[in-house]
């Protein structure tokens, strides 16, 4: 230790100012020794967190949830509650079994529960919803290591597992405020071919007054949620726009070629789960590419696959399969669209 508290020089411009070294004598050090946090740079942060992102997604899902409850009443309330609760419980149990910290606090299990419920028909037996939730969280997410490691969108895996296991229950629909069962818009198209689609119907489809999974019916509510996500910069426009754009483009071309066999493009945007898929499912960060260019390719791929399945596939709707297939190639898309590094010439 250097010599203690020798008066400092007056300095060039200060005759009165005198100060002593602080914390230099040993006793002083002992008394006041403060501890400072030492960590790697940067020492500033945007303040963003995974939790906040997930919370924003939940907030963005509220309009669609409200519409679901409005149209499907207690069925929607029950489905959503059962899915959310079973997803959260499954997550807790899995984390406990794997001896990892709880993980529920990142809210992602709640989102999976909400999205899975949104992808189910209103009359589905509740025990099936539980099965779907356990598959979504247990098999599609936690088996891979939890949030961040899952290659496929958990809610979609849950839905597809149910669709394959319980095809009848998963394709039984009723219209809002109506207890008789009837097919969905896309189901009708598949079974009976093209039908008249006027502006009044389009408006019903837009607001959500149609048959379908409880959270997919209202394009208006989903778009509102999407706008919120864009505003909060949780998602970028790339995936929803390229997905919906591709669907509209392909539908439009087919419709222009032959409108006896094809429905107009706005039908394809409003019917089925493409709005829910493009805004909330395909944009799932974990399972979609990280580069902007990759996101565009991803969205286009989803759109093409969706239309292929709708037009020529065995199922009336192809959104779930399209997104899951594109999830599988997301890492490859990342690799292929790796940005050119600054100062490195294009090969």
């Amino acid at each position: 230790m250097p010599a203690e508290g020798r008066p400092a020089c007056g300095g060039n411009n200060s005759t009165t100012q005198r100060f002593e070294r602080i914390n230099m004598t040993e006793e002083k050090t002992k008394e006041t020794e403060p501890t400072y946090i030492v960590s790697s740079s940067p020492h500033a942060h945007s303040g963003d967190s995974v939790q906040r992102i997930m919370l924003d997604v939940i907030i963005a899902l509220i309009p669609a949830l409200a519409v679901a409850i409005y149209f499907f009443r207690m069925d929607a309330v029950k489905l959503v509650s059962v899915c959310v609760v079973s997803c959260v419980i499954t997550e807790l149990v899995c984390r406990k079994l794997m001896k990892r910290d709880a993980g529920v606090m990142d809210f992602s299990a709640i989102i999976t529960g909400l999205l899975l419920a949104f992808n189910l028909p209103p009359s589905l037996p509740l025990w099936m919803a539980v099965v779907g939730s356990v598959i979504a969280i247990g098999i599609a997410k936690q088996v891979f290591g939890g949030l961040g490691y899952n290659p496929f969108n958990p809610a979609l895996i849950g839905r597809v597992a149910l669709l394959i296991s319980f095809p009848a229950a998963m394709t039984t629909w009723y219209a809002p405020f109506d207890s008789t069962t009837s097919a969905t818009a896309l189901g009708t198209l598949k079974e009976q071919g093209v039908y008249g689609f006027d502006d009044a119907m389009a408006l019903n489809y837009f607001t959500g007054n149609m048959n379908g999974c409880i959270g997919e019916v209202s394009a208006a509510a989903l778009l509102l949620g999407g706008a919120y996500l864009l505003m909060r910069k949780v998602i970028t426009w790339h995936i929803p726009v390229s997905y919906l754009g591709t669907v509209a483009l392909i539908a439009g071309i087919m419709w222009l070629i032959n409108d006896d066999f094809n429905m107009p493009p706005h039908f394809h945007l409003l019917a089925g789960g493409v709005m829910l898929g493009a805004i909330f499912m395909a944009t799932d960060m974990v399972t979609s590419p990280v580069t902007r260019k990759g996101m565009l390719i991803f969205g286009i791929g989803c759109g093409v696959l969706t239309m292929l399945i709708r037009k020529w596939g065995g199922y009336p709707e192809g959104v779930s399969f399209a997104i899951l297939l594109m999830n599988a190639v997301a890492p490859l898309i990342n690799r292929a669209t790796k940005p050119r590094v600054f100062g490195v010439k294009k090969a």
Binding site: V50, G146, G148, V290, P339, R340, V341, G343
Partner: peptide, 22 residues
């Protein structure tokens, strides 16, 4: 004091990198 969690592939680091790295 933050504890870090697994990457959720949000891509914000890719957007922010002035050297265009991933």
């Amino acid at each position: 004091n933050y504890s870090s969690t697994p990457c959720i592939s949000c891509g914000r680091c890719v957007d922010g990198c002035p050297m265009y790295l991933m």
